[in-house]
Simulated scan of single mutants.
Amino acid sequence: MTNKRTWAPGVAGGGLAMLLALTACGDAGNGEDDNGGELAGETFTVGSKEFTESYVLGYISALLLEDAGAETVDQTGISGTATVRAALESEEIDLYWDYTGTGWVDILGNTTEDLPDDLYQAVAEADEENGIAWLEPANFENTYRIATTESFASEQGLSTMTEAADYINENPDENGLCAASEFINRDDGLPGLEEAYDVDFDAVELDLNLIYPQVGDSCEFGEVFSTDARIEANDLIVLDDDQDFFVPYEGALTLRQETLDEHPAIEELHQPVSEALTDEVVMELNGRVDTGGEDPRDVAEDWLMEQGFID
C-alpha cells in the first residue's frame, strides 16, 4: 500500500493543545485520493496513548481509514489516559483505542469492586451519556499484572500475588515495585492492589518502557501488561492474581458518537479486524516492536496486508 506522510498541522487551542504537540508524534498519513474508498475526502485525527500496543492499534485504525480513502493526522503517543480522553472529548483527536477496565474505573469513576457481569456493555451505556461511543471490543484483553524474575520466583516459591504479599510482609525490605506513574496513582492500579492483598510496595516510578529490564535490578517486582512480549524476553514470570483484583481490560476503539453517526463505515471497517486481534496476535505485534525494533506503523501495515484487510 503506497502512502504519503506529511507533517501534521499544529493543534489549535490552549494548554491541552500544547501538551499534545509535545507528547504526540507530529506526522500525518494521507489516504490515496484516487482509490474511491467510502471515506474518500474525509480527514480523521488518530490518537493513542504512549505505550507500544496503543501505538500499534492507533496505526491499525489509521491504515484502515486511509485504505478506505480518508486522510489521517497522526497524534499517537499522547501521555496518559486523562490527556488522550480529554483530547477526544475536545475534538483534538477523532478516535483512539482504550480498555474496558480503564473506562469503568479511570474514566467513569467506578471502583474495582462489584463489577457488572457485562463490563463492556456497562461502560458503553454509561459513556453514551458523555457522547462517546465504544465499538465492540476486540478479541484480546490486556490487563495489568505483577511480575518478577523467574529466578526470584523460583528461589522464594512465588507463583501467586497472595504468596508474594506474604513474602513481602515477612521481608519488608524486598518490596520494590517498578511501575509507571499512572499505575501508581489510579484506583485499579497500585492503591487498590495494596488494599486487596494487604501489602505495601515501595514504588519505583519509571517510564513504561524501562520497567521490564529493571525488574530484578532496581526492584523485585514490576507492573506489566499481560500482552507484552517483553515478559518472556526479560525472563519474567507473571504472578497469578488469585484474588481477582484486576479488572478485565478488553481493547476497544472509542470515538465521539457524532463521528460514528456521520461515518458508520468506521465501525464496519474495524469489526473484522477486532475479531482477528487475539491475545496471541497482539503479543506478537508488540514483540516485533519492543524486541524486534520494528516501527509500529510498519508492523501494523504488514499485519493488515497479510490478513487481507488492506491492499
Rank of each mutant, 00 (worst) to 15 (best):
P213Y: 01
A196Y: 00
R186P: 01
R186E: 09
A196Q: 13
E205Y: 01
E170R: 08
L193P: 06
N169V: 01
G176F: 02
E205V: 13
A180N: 14
F183H: 08
D198K: 02
L210Q: 15
Y167A: 03
F183M: 14
S181I: 11
N185I: 08
N169T: 01
E195Q: 14
Y167L: 07
E194N: 07
L206G: 05
D198Y: 02
L206T: 02
G189Q: 04
E195Y: 00
V199L: 05
D207T: 10
E182Q: 12
P172V: 05
D207L: 13
A179I: 09
E195T: 12
N169I: 00
I184Y: 11
P172E: 06
A203C: 08
D187R: 11
A180C: 12
E174S: 12
A203K: 03
I184S: 14
E174G: 00
N171K: 10
L206C: 04
D200S: 12
E205L: 11
A203Y: 02
G176Q: 05
N175I: 04
D188S: 12
G189P: 08
E182L: 14
A203W: 01
L208W: 14
E170Q: 14
V204N: 11
L210V: 08
G192Y: 04
I184K: 15
D187T: 12
E174Q: 14
N169Y: 03
S181T: 14
F201E: 01
G189N: 06
F201W: 10
G192V: 01
P172Q: 09
I211T: 08
A179H: 05
F183Q: 04
D207Y: 10
G176Y: 02
E170I: 01
V199P: 03
N209E: 13
L210I: 03
P172W: 06
D187I: 07
F183G: 03
E205D: 11
A180D: 15
N209L: 13
E205G: 06
L208I: 12
D198H: 00
E170W: 02
A180H: 14
F201A: 05
D173V: 02
E194M: 08
Y197S: 02
D188L: 05
S181G: 13
